[in-house]
């Protein structure tokens, strides 16, 4: 297939995914309203736990007492990760459920190209939602401001985080072709991320979480993003994070591609492509 035809497939897949997404009115309403309201549970939780929006104990662990800002940044960045898990990791299961998977596999287009289209569609939708969330929290008095000097390195970190993470979700999508089950695995992965990466709390609170968290790219990305937004961290530590994420990206993308290709071939051999 030519490069132009491949781009055509990616565009068609993105259009299809977004069109199906928009065909469920409740999802559209939810995502239109959710970015306006999503901060309040965190505000109320913060008030109940520390009596306000900052805590001296928290400052000792993280360098910033602004608990609310910590949690809100964690929630926004993890949105990318979790929506990627559902949107990309679960996408081939959806195709199987719709009965369309066999027609994708029987076409001359590699399912990996389809996954790239799904990834870009998912990334586009999540970016819109996270941008809305960022607008909401920058308007409210949480001590978070988004200047261009902060946003650009944050976008770099998020881009690097998601590049490797999509490698992981592509392997996961292949895995779902084999196991015919995705929801349980995604819930388990969400739980692992919540436990072992600093989405809602600093991982330094426990020795095990501190060690395990270093294996998860989300940890490195969150530490760097919070450093940029809350602590105005210098460029040297940013460079280290970029390097680590690049290494992780290379490993995850290559491994994701190899694992998916192997699993796809295995399902063709086992005769389970269209089963659900």
């Amino acid at each position: 297939m030519t490069f132009a035809a491949t781009i055509g497939v990616i565009r068609a897949e993105m259009a299809k995914t977004i069109r199906i997404y928009l065909s469920y009115p409740i999802i559209v309403v939810f995502w239109a309203v959710f970015p306006m309201l999503w901060v309040f549970p965190f505000v109320f939780q913060g008030k109940a736990l520390v009596g306000g929006m900052s805590s001296p104990a928290f400052e000792q662990l993280t360098g910033s007492g602004n608990y609310m800002a910590f949690v809100l940044i964690g929630a926004m960045v993890s949105n990318f990760v979790f929506s990627g898990l559902w949107g990309v990791g679960n996408s081939l299961r959806e195709e199987t459920y719709w009965g369309t998977m066999e027609y994708i596999i029987a076409s001359p287009t590699s399912p990996l190209v389809i996954l790239v289209g799904k990834t870009l569609a998912e990334a586009a939708v999540t970016t819109c939602i996270v941008c809305l969330q960022a607008v909401v929290i920058s308007i409210l008095p949480f001590g978070i401001s988004f200047t261009l000097a902060k946003v650009l390195p944050v976008l770099l970190i998020v881009g690097l985080l998601m590049l490797g993470f999509y490698g992981f979700t592509i392997a996961f999508a292949g895995f779902t072709l084999l196991i015919k089950e995705a929801h349980g695995w995604i819930h388990t992965l969400e739980w692992v991320f919540f436990l072992f990466s600093p989405i809602r709390y600093p991982v330094q609170v426990n020795a095990i979480t501190q060690v395990v968290s270093t294996l998860i790219p989300l940890t490195w990305a969150l530490v760097a993003i919070r450093g940029i937004i809350l602590l105005n961290r210098n460029e040297v530590s940013l460079g280290r994070t970029v390097f680590i994420l690049l290494v992780m990206d290379a490993i995850l993308l290559v491994a994701g591609w190899l694992i998916f290709s192997w699993l796809e071939r295995k399902t063709r051999r086992d005769g389970t492509v269209g089963m659900h």
Binding site: T2, A5, G8, V9, E13, A15, R19, I104, T109
Partner: peptide, 13 residues
């Protein structure tokens, strides 16, 4: 929309 999508899989545009 269905036919457009599957056409793309076969390189038609």
């Amino acid at each position: 929309a269905n036919l457009n999508f599957f056409a793309a899989l076969y390189g038609l545009s």
